[in-house]
Design a protein around this nucleic acid. Structure first.
Length: 252
DNA sequence: CCAGACGTTGTT
DNA sequence: GTCTGG
DNA sequence: CCAGACGTTGTT
DNA sequence: GTCTGG
C-alpha cells in the first residue's frame, strides 16, 4: 500500500501546516544527516511545484527528526539500509509494516533514531474489482495536508568513483497499518497518518522507546477522511498532472 | 562458530 | 550493522 | 504503486 | 515470471 501520493500544496502552505522554521521559502537542504548547518535564512528559496502523482525513487520533501529548527529536507522514496551493497534495494522498501518495524533489521535502527514526517495531501490505492484495478484517491475530508509516519536512512557508496568523496544518499520509507472502516473495502493496508499532537514525539531526536512510539501507529479515523475514484491516467508515474487527482464518475 | 539474509505488496 | 539458520 | 523491460558484441 | 525505473 501507499505506493503513490499527492503533494499539491504550495511551499507557503507546507511552511504553515508544519510550522517550519523558515518563512521565506523552503530550505534547500537535501541532506538530513549532514553535519553542515542548515542553509541560513536569506538563502535562495527552493520553489516546490505541486505534485499530483508522486512515485517511489523520487526525491521528496520530508521533515526529519534532527535537532534544531524544523525544516524541510529532501530524500529519495525507498529506504536503502545503511549496510546495503546495492541501492536498488530501495525500490522495494517503500513501506514498512508498523507491526514489525521495531524488529526488522532494515528498520529497527531507523525506528529508534531516524524518524520523519512525510507531508502529503492525498494517496492512491488500487481497488481490485474482479480483474480490474480501480485507482482511488484518499485524503482528509476537506483536502488538507497531513503527515505520514516515515523513517529515513543514510547510505554511503562502498567505493567512490575516482578520488571524489562519496556522496551520501538519503532515503525514506512510509509506515503502514491496518485500514480504517472507510478504507477496508478498498485495500488491506493504509499509511500511518500522525495527528498534530503526535508530531513532537515522532520527531524527537532521541529514542523514546517502542512503548512510547508504537501507540502512535494506528489507523487514522475514518470520520476525518474521504475517498473518490480517479482516472487510470494515474497508473503511469510519467503522468503528473492535476487530472491524476481529479474525481471521475463511472455513471457517465 | 560462520553464512546468509535483511522487505512489502498482492496474487496464487 | 544485526539477526536467523545451520 | 504500475509500467515496461527482460541481451551482447562490436562498431560508429 | 521477475526485476528495474519512475
Amino acid at each position: 500500500m501507499c505506493g503513490r501520493y499527492t503533494l499539491k500544496a504550495s511551499a507557503q502552505e507546507l511552511i504553515e501546516a508544519f510550522e517550519l522554521a523558515h518563512d521565506d521559502g523552503l530550505d534547500l537542504a537535501p541532506d538530513p544527516a549532514s553535519e553542515r548547518p542548515p542553509v541560513p535564512l536569506g538563502a535562495p528559496p527552493l520553489t516546490w511545484s505541486p505534485r499530483f502523482n508522486i512515485a517511489p525513487t523520487q526525491s521528496l520533501p520530508i521533515i526529519a527528526n534532527v535537532p534544531g529548527p524544523r525544516l524541510i529536507r529532501f530524500a529519495r522514496w525507498g529506504l536503502v539500509p545503511s549496510w546495503a551493497k546495492d541501492p536498488k534495494i530501495g525500490s522495494r522498501m517503500i513501506n514498512a509494516r508498523s507491526e514489525t518495524v521495531a524488529d526488522k533489521p532494515s528498520f529497527r535502527s531507523p525506528f529508534r533514531r531516524q524518524r520523519c514526517l512525510v507531508p502529503a495531501d492525498g494517496f492512491y490505492e488500487w481497488q481490485r474489482v474482479g480483474k480490474a484495478k480501480r485507482p482511488m484517491h484518499i485524503g482528509l475530508d476537506g483536502g488538507g495536508l497531513f503527515a505520514m509516519a516515515g523513517l529515513w536512512e543514510r547510505w554511503l557508496p562502498r567505493d567512490a568513483p575516482g578520488d571524489a568523496a562519496p556522496e551520501p544518499l538519503h532515503t525514506f520509507t512510509v509506515l503502514t497499518t491496518t485500514p480504517n472502516p472507510l478504507l477496508a473495502p478498498i485495500h488491506d493496508r493504509m499509511p500511518v497518518i500522525l495527528p498534530r499532537d503526535a508530531w513532537d514525539l515522532w520527531l524527537s531526536p532521541d529514542d523514546p522507546g517502542r512503548s512510547a512510539l508504537q501507540p502512535l501507529l494506528t489507523p487514522y479515523p475514518a470520520e476525518a477522511m474521504a475517498t473518490f475514484e480517479v482516472d487510470t491516467l494515474v497508473n503511469s508515474a510519467r503522468n503528473d498532472v492535476p487530472a491524476c487527482a481529479a474525481p471521475v464518475s463511472r455513471l457517465l
